[in-house]
Design a protein around this nucleic acid. Structure first.
Lengths: 260, 260
DNA sequence: CCCTTCTGCGTATGTCATACGCGTTATTGC
DNA sequence: GCAATAACGCGTATGACATACGCAGAAGGG
């Protein structure tokens, strides 16, 4: 009764088992005319072309030349498709050059964060996928592992490494989500990014009351919003702060424990 | 042509104008039997009781004792309702005691972050609302303003203050989103939080390969996951790192500028 | 050779957001 | 007062969409 994997305890949503390669192919009925890979690839294409909202079971089916319901032979629900799309679009991490060149944890973690960011920026629709619990897919674990590895020489406790990885990972997602919003506004109306931010600044000026919002007023007056913002600025800024904070922790930990 | 507010340039989604109080009430037809406030309050109640997914126009209408379509006299689309729900549930910020007692930026920012977190935890469904661009509601601006104010004595540049506020705010949201996921898993199956994390750890043990994932393996062996985790731990940890990072920036900036 | 099992898929159901238009009700200009 | 004018509440209709159900045909296994 606990033979297969159906009711063991910590269970995968069935189609995830396929992602891990532990799928005992039935070998009994007719051979499948489709494949998970084709379906997921088609779904990713649709999302990349027309956004996540355009990914419907019907649309994906049409894209692979099958009927809507046939997809359910491969995916038990749309949420599973989402997970698989995430896995496919994010892909496995590249080896960190900072680790190979023997650079420190800071360079390694920065490289890791940038790589993660690149993947998100390449598929902004990833950020629209409703989250579903902690990672349990091959690529998610691989990225997690790589994050831990970046902190290998840091002397941090195991739990802290994961906490840091989570912290940085969440930061990257947040920043990318901002970009996704901006990109969405840009394509929604047909204007340039600068026009969108300028329009937002105009809205702010209309709403902000210098008495009630002295700080924001000062910001507006400082002209800091009008500058043609380097799109990497917010990312770099946040990452530097984060790494500084991690550095402080490492220094503290190092003092009270044995060095590597 | 730019008289009202319809085609000025930086425009509000119409029902937001009501949130700002700048709504020229029609005064022509029959008096409305409903009000935005009642509708939004009902929607918030539904979300609090049965989750954001239960918030449908029909359900909300039923809750206020009206028909589905009558809601559209008050809200032009569901997205607007979402924005208003966010505004209502999040509410305005309390005054920061750290500011009144003259404590430093660190205490102020920590208090600010905690307050924001409390609001999110009180309404976890807030995190399920799909994001829609930068803040333009009264309470959003008020929180933003308060964040800037917390950094008043820091000597940071105006733009940097906002960057820090954004950074911390995103962190709080990310952490709360984690909690929301956990809570969702807890209510979905009917088990305890500890059971959920234990189940996840079991899943991990099944998937993690010590060769491929030495870091995660070490984490699992360290027992760091099994400890009955303080639910505040991840939040406190991340916030400390963040504040340390901000502190490093302030120290750097302070060196090149005048002190307060 | 038949029986089991899996396939693709047509059909049906139920949920939603929302466009449209009708009858009704206040308010305003005369 | 009175009609013209808006705004109101809301019934109906439309069009997506996810997905349950069941059937008919295909492939191996005994």
């Amino acid at each position: 009764m606990a033979e297969k994997s159906s009711s063991g305890g910590g269970d995968l949503p069935a189609s995830l088992e396929a992602a891990w390669g532990l799928r005992d192919r039935p070998a009994k009925g007719p051979k499948p005319g489709l494949s998970l890979e084709r379906i997921v690839a088609a779904a990713v294409d649709v999302a990349s072309a027309d956004g996540l909202a355009a990914v419907s079971m019907g649309r994906v089916a049409q894209e692979v030349g099958a009927s809507t319901m046939s997809l359910y032979r491969y995916v038990s629900a749309k949420d599973e498709l989402y997970v698989l799309m995430q896995e496919a679009a994010f892909g496995p991490p590249e080896p960190l050059s900072a680790l190979e060149s023997g650079a420190g944890w800071r360079e390694a973690l920065a490289e890791w964060a940038s790589a993660q960011r690149d993947r998100l920026h390449a598929h902004l629709w990833l950020l629209r996928i409703p989250v579903g619990g902690p990672p349990a897919t091959p690529n998610s674990l691989a990225w997690w592992e790589q994050g831990i590895q970046a902190l290998e020489g840091s002397g941090l406790a195991e739990g802290d490494k994961t906490s840091v990885v989570l912290l940085v990972s969440n930061f990257v997602r947040s920043e990318a989500a901002l970009m996704a919003d901006l990109a969405a506004a840009v394509t929604a109306r047909g204007v340039s990014p600068d026009e969108v931010t300028a329009s937002y600044e105009r809205t702010l000026r209309r709403l902000v009351d210098p008495d009630r919002h002295p700080g924001i007023s000062r910001l507006l007056e400082s002209g800091a919003m009008s500058e043609p913002d380097d799109p990497d600025y917010e990312f770099t800024f946040g990452l530097e702060r984060l790494l500084d904070g991690v550095g402080a922790l490492i220094r503290k930990t190092d003092g009270g424990a044995e060095p590597a």
